[in-house]
Nucleic acid binder design. Structure first.
Lengths: 145, 145
DNA sequence: GTAATTGCAAATACTTTGCCACGTA
DNA sequence: TACGTGGCAAAGTATTTGCAATTAC
């Protein structure tokens, strides 16, 4: 709890250093995310106990945008609004390398290092139809100005 | 090329075995995906050379749904329509375990096995701001009827 | 006081469904 | 013929933007 409050203060401090203004919404957003054991959607955020009736969806959206732009947050998954689909080739697993600037997607040629952990988790967690997805993200050489 | 055609035939065969009817749209969809080195969005599919003016967006959508339901395709990423966001804690990487039925998201406690490959790829590819995301998917014990 | 931030409403964008015509088996 | 599939149009849902009012500094 104290950790959460201190972490929030640190995040707010980093925002200030990056030219953002400290607002109530910002504080509640940090507390909400720090208290959550998992990533959250914009809807979950704007309807959470701390933010609900506290601020508008658009406010949460723009706040998150700002925090992403200064490197305090990240959007998970492929960075397009649309969903991606792939064929399932039996016994062929594929990892991907994605440019966060131009959106290009390439296949990773190296062998996937996750299968061992996948087997362990399959057994330990009791999940069925178990599989994993591994994506690498970054700015590709072409997009580095 | 011949591989692509044969693979398409095999996929069509598997569709038939699962009670789906073989249609032109289905054939063009398989060819398109097999020729693509990466996953595709519904828009990319319905506007691709093979499918464009060949069939409607809704058709592609429903076709993909059917193929997913019989296990020939997969939708990448978290299975919610909305995007997920997370705070970036310095030096804290997190992998996730997600139930494809109830949508629950848990943190994976085991150490992440990807860092070595990440370092290799960072150097080899010349990408900047490099990072990765690893998700495990499956049906959690609670959702296994 | 100045510029960033907010709320509300409207505009976009992607996804999903209804309904009837059509094509496969 | 019977029923899965397709096209078109409309509905649904998440995201994004415009603008005037408000707030942090």
């Amino acid at each position: 709890m104290i950790d959460t409050i201190n972490a929030t203060k640190e995040f707010m401090q980093r925002c200030r250093e990056n030219g953002l203004r400290r607002t109530k919404a910002m504080e509640q957003l940090f507390l909400t995310l720090l208290e959550s054991p998992r990533p959250m959607t914009l809807n979950e955020l704007s309807q959470s106990a701390r933010l609900n009736e506290q601020c508008d969806k658009a406010t949460v959206f723009r706040l998150v945008q700002r925090l992403i732009s200064i490197g305090l947050m990240r959007r998970l998954g492929l960075h397009e609004r649309a969903a991606y689909f792939t064929l399932l080739m039996p016994n062929k697993h594929q990892d991907y390398l994605i440019c966060t600037d131009c959106g290009s997607i390439e296949q990773v040629e190296a062998p996937c290092p996750v299968h061992k952990l996948e087997d362990e988790l399959r057994e330990k967690t009791g999940f069925r139809n178990f599989y994993h997805e591994l994506f690498f993200f970054g700015t590709c050489p072409c997009c580095q100005v």
